[in-house]
Design a protein around this nucleic acid. Sequence first.
DNA 1: TAACCGTGCCAC
DNA 2: AAACGTGGCACGGTTA
Length: 428
Amino acid sequence: MQEAGMWKLYEEIELPLLPVLADMEMAGILLDTQFLAQMSAELGQRLQACQKRLFTLVGHEFNLRSTQQLSQVLFQEMGFPTTGLRKTQSGFISTAVGELEKLMAASQNLSADQQEVLELIFEHRQLEKLRSTYVDALPTLVNPATGRLHTSFNQTGASTGRLSSSNPNLQNIPIRTELGREIRRAFIAPEGWLLLAADYSQVELRVLAHVAQEPALLDAFRQGQDIHAATASKLFGVPIDQVTRSQRGLAKTINFATIYGVSAYGLSSRTEMDPSQAQQFLDQYFETYPRVRQYIEETIRQANEQGYVETLLGRKRYFPELKRRLPHNQRQALERAAINAPIQGSAADIIKIAMIRLHKRLAEEGFQARMLLQVHDELVLEMPAHERDAVASLVREVMENAYHLDAPLKVDVEVGPNWLDMEEVGSQ
DNA sequence: TAACCGTGCCAC
DNA sequence: AAACGTGGCACGGTTA
Ligand SMILES: Nc1nc2c(ncn2[C@H]2C[C@H](O)[C@@H](COP(=O)(O)OP(=O)(O)OP(=O)(O)O)O2)c(=O)[nH]1
Ligand SMILES: [Mn+2]
Ligand SMILES: [Mn+2]
């Protein structure tokens, strides 16, 4: 570690972070298991109905959770067209939603029954995922001694320097669909207390603007613009102030996919664009942000020549395989990982600084408020209601000043009785 | 029965 | 041929 020049990182970040994480794990978070039991029953009803109708349309029963059986039913028994669909490594035609959507997109080739089958599969997949991974699983993990849900934060879980969370993973609680979001209602504060969630705005885009010194991006952030919303406005042809939550969400994926090396084909499969429109989009993107392309090329050169890339705090990720002869696609995959690592890793560095400082400040200033969760660029705390305003401004101050970027860090702070119903706390 | 792999999908 | 990155978990199906 010393030879690698990472001793300082170890002493000043990872080591002091350890007791912070320990406190968070021991604190745990309160879960409304009654609410989840209710939700489970409702999901069970819908799943039953879904399954029954599907078996009627298909003509027999089978295990809907088996991708092998489902593939057989769709592509051998029911005669769905298979052109353009991916095969899995075991030789079956993939039944991933993304593949089945290709079928839906060519719906003129499908009978009404076939279309209904696809819709029912989509519904069944979503309900089954939510029930098995969250609604039924989380309550079984509540600790009987504390009555709370305790995750493990793994400090060495990710190669970029991010944390990971397991048993249960509390970094992937649903938010993107209305139904999935409902699960967040089960994460609650005790009576008289509130949850607070503070999330960095567009964080990796700001890190990118800083490290690439891209003037157009830096300007945009200095003026307080929302790049995800701007991209959404362009993608969907709507004014920026009419961009919906889900439109902005897709634009977010597009923005990060673009800077981390997506192909025109990959971009087209995630949008309504065809591959040539997608190529145009990419060309325009890098024309608008020319330093981003330069930064990418420079990072790839570094990974190949030095054998590693590094974050703002000097965290290194090594790429020894790049020194060897490799199939073209494997080399490209490693190069994309090398582009991503300094940015994702720097964002992780920044929030780790914030966590250490915030932990200290909360203790020093005598707050009862405590950190419970970290979700990569978000901190979730609980606090007595009367601490609301003081803690909100402290959290914002500590997070925004954790590290100086030329694109200023901005934090959105929200407060509420649970992780779903939250209202924004302004910075004034 | 437990461990493992492949598939698929949730989040950031 | 394969075509954003980083994770963890449930399930089916196979193996030991
Ligand atoms: N490569 C990649 N990184 C992602 C993706 N989604 C999220 N991230 C990374 C980059 C984000 O800046 C970071 C935090 O995720 P958030 O959902 O908080 O998004 P972000 O902060 O960019 O926007 P926000 O203003 O919080 O909505 O995680 C993705 O689809 N691909
Ligand atoms: Mn964010
Ligand atoms: Mn976030």
